[in-house]
Design a protein around this nucleic acid. Structure first.
Lengths: 211, 211
DNA sequence: CGCGAAGTGGGGAAGATCGTCCGTTTGGGT
DNA sequence: ACCCAAACGGACGATCTTCCCCACTTCGCG
């Protein structure tokens, strides 16, 4: 917020710094509402600056997007690690609350939802953060498996499948998805907890996401 | 194929009829692969005709799309009613095979997937067919509920939720979705069959879809 | 208070799609 | 075999969207 740390490369003039913050805030708002495909002109308008100002500060759409998402990703990583720690004592509780957290995040922020489920989107630094959380996610699932609080053929990629499924709800109707998601999550959790017939094997599809 | 029935309004010249069929086939192919947003120029190119020919036969994108989807929808309606009939004797088998059928259809045809999950898309006639199948779907679920082969708080809108979820898989990566969907379907079926804690209530969101 | 750095916003370029015009070709009835 | 009407197709203008640059203005540090 008022920190304004940013990079110490060059001390920005007061109004320039103000505009930079306004652009970042506007971009965050529009990215959350409309996804990664926002028009840069729209961002500039939302921030109340000319489009030229935006292009001077951020050389490309990717740079802007990764600046915005980078901040949010830090929070995401932290929360994931917190749940992992909790997972030792309460594997089921950690699994459910982590799942809820991520899905709520997806619902609240379309750009996050898109980056989360589409490998190839986002900058390298972003993907690295995501990979890191994916390793934590694997551990959370492993703890649940070890504690036998989920069916033995559950797999960590099932979480990724849920995250993609949530995107389907959002795409169909972003408005109503905010009401509909809890039942979707509960359905997955019920399936993971149940001991019905074996699920089809995890396809090799998910390997690429893990790499 | 070689039937060429169409409307008896005006006997089309031989080459005109041939082109009309080529356009419909090309449109079906591209709609299946790329969804409803295909460019009409692309359809014309795929059919090997000029764009003017396409516009002469089909006054609008909607007319073309509904002609193509109308045929497929007939098959869809028929299959749904067949499963409903079967549902009397084998409620669980009908539910599972119906679910598999629809999801396979979604995977194979993106335009169908989009129309299925986005009320407001498609022509009135199309929506009517969909509404009809939705009534059948409700009956299939009701049979399963009555036979107690699914948990008592299952709801027919859960099928719609699954269909939207499948779209999430397709959107993330259409290629890999063809491998990944069976486990998604199995997860839902496992949840419906299980008797875990109650699911969150069905939100009012789905009422509109039912109307 | 003056000068240079930064900002402004309008506008042009590029890409995509839509839908129509018109010269040319082709079908098929006689 | 002939000939007209119907159909063809490629190209063109219009519209839309987004990206990015240029000439002019304004701010604020020293």
């Amino acid at each position: 917020m008022t920190t304004g740390g940013s990079s110490p490369s060059k001390p920005l003039r007061a109004d320039a710094e103000r505009n930079r913050s306004a652009i970042l805030a506007a971009a965050a708002r529009l990215l959350a509402k409309n996804g990664l495909s926002v028009s840069l002109d729209d961002v500039a308008a939302e921030a109340g600056v000319g489009s030229a100002t935006l292009y001077r500060r951020f050389s490309s759409r990717d740079e802007l997007a990764s600046d915005v998402l980078g901040q949010q990703m830090a929070e995401y990583v932290a929360r994931t690690e917190a749940e992992l720690a909790r997972s030792q004592d309460d594997p089921w509780g950690a699994l459910t609350s982590y799942t809820h957290f991520v899905v709520e995040h997806q619902i609240a922020d379309r750009a996050f939802a898109e980056v989360l489920s589409s490998p190839g989107l986002g900058t390298a630094a972003l993907r690295e953060d995501l990979d890191r959380t994916y390793r934590d996610l694997q551990a959370i699932v492993q703890n649940a498996l070890d504690a036998k609080v989920v069916r033995p053929d559950m797999h960590c990629s099932d979480l990724l499948m849920l995250f993609r499924a949530v995107n389907g709800l959002i795409a169909a109707d972003a408005e109503t998805a905010t009401e509909a998601w809890p039942r979707l999550v509960a359905t997955f959790l019920a399936a993971w907890r149940s001991d019905g017939p074996a699920l089809p094997p995890v396809s090799a599809v998910w390997d690429r996401t893990e790499a």
